[in-house]
């Protein structure tokens, strides 16, 4: 069992390289030392292309490989994978109609002490702007393995967002579907916890009569599981920019009157270092913060 999502990533790549001759890993220095330590670069020297610290090139090269029939896996820290080469992802992959697996590490507040330059809570929102991106946000290393394998065996454009932050237990997740973690009475409020937010959400709502849905696939959004709950009050708790998936929820419930509270990373320059937990608190995403926001929303005094 991998102990971190990054370990799960390295293991899954090892499996892919062994079983899929079309799998090629494209890097911009980040990750090279981990793949080296795992012996993979030595074992498959042709299947790793390190571009050096050149992220635009990393994405363009990956697109060229996809054009030649390969399944590229493109990997870096979140801001350098998604934000810096965003136009390359838009043109070289989306517009050219090519597929590939984008895998980031260091999402949420893994990089709290590194500062804003190493954080990208905008990532999922940005990729949502492009057509046909599947997006996976695992909350546990074992879930990361499941989702990475699904990403590797599809032909489409997939983003897998990995964090060091993790829930204590893996859930029996299925790619594309939300997992019903806790079922409240029919029609009771629904709290949707995305990826690594689940433990904090469960802690926050332990005394509330709510249904908890656990999302690890965020695009395409699993509207049916949400609709089946018949809920009219929805709370969305995301490990990235606040309200990133609000429009999917509005779309899923377009024909039903409903209220929505979105919790997530606030769009502000915090200008603090410290620990991931410090940042979680500052954005009101610790279990106390989540409970306060949910209580105000569900039971206004």
């Amino acid at each position: 069992m991998p102990s971190t999502m990054r370990d799960a990533f390295i293991d899954t790549i090892g499996l892919m390289l062994e079983t899929d001759p079309d799998a090629v890993v494209v890097l911009a220095d980040i990750g090279v030392s981990q793949f080296k330590a795992a012996g993979l670069i030595e074992r498959y020297p042709d299947r790793f292309i390190n571009c050096g610290i050149r992220e635009q090139l990393m994405v363009g090269v990956a697109a060229g490989l996809a054009k030649e029939g390969f399944r590229p896996i493109i990997h870096s820290y979140t801001p350098f994978l998604i934000e810096r080469p965003f136009e390359q992802i838009k043109i070289d992959f989306a517009h050219l109609g090519l597929g590939g697996v984008f895998v980031s590490v260091g999402a949420l507040f893994d990089a709290a002490s590194s500062g804003r330059t190493h954080q990208a809570p905008e990532d999922v929102g940005l990729l949502k702007l492009l057509p046909e991106f599947e997006m996976y946000v695992p909350g546990h290393p074992d879930e990361a393995s499941v989702l990475l394998r699904a990403a590797g065996s599809s032909n489409g454009r997939v983003y897998v967002r990995l964090t060091e932050d993790s829930n204590s237990l893996a859930r029996p997740i299925e790619p594309g579907k939300m997992h019903v973690e806790r079922r409240g009475p029919v029609g009771s409020p629904v709290v949707i916890a995305v990826g690594p937010m689940l433990d904090r959400v469960l802690d926050a709502v332990s005394d509330l009569a709510v249904t908890v849905l656990y999302a690890t696939t965020v695009m395409p959004f699993d509207s049916w599981t949400l609709r089946d709950t018949m809920a009219t009050e929805i709370v969305l708790v995301e490990p990235y920019l606040i309200g990133t998936s609000s429009s999917e929820i509005s779309g899923a419930l377009h024909d039903r009157p409903h209220r929505l509270l979105a919790l997530g990373v606030r769009n502000t320059e915090l200008r603090h270092y410290g620990t991931p937990e410090d940042h979680i608190k500052a954005h009101g995403l610790d279990s106390d913060g989540i409970l306060k926001s949910i209580s105000r929303f569900l039971y206004p005094s």
């Binding site: 042709d46 994405v59 090269v61 490989l65 996809a66 054009k67 030649e68 517009h95």
Partner: peptide, 25 residues
Amino acid sequence: VEIGTGSLGHGLPIAVGMTLGLRIK
């Protein structure tokens, strides 16, 4: 026509990737 272009500076990185693809094959 191999690719769609217009925004400048995209073709050459893709060409490098295609060349590497041929080399791997």
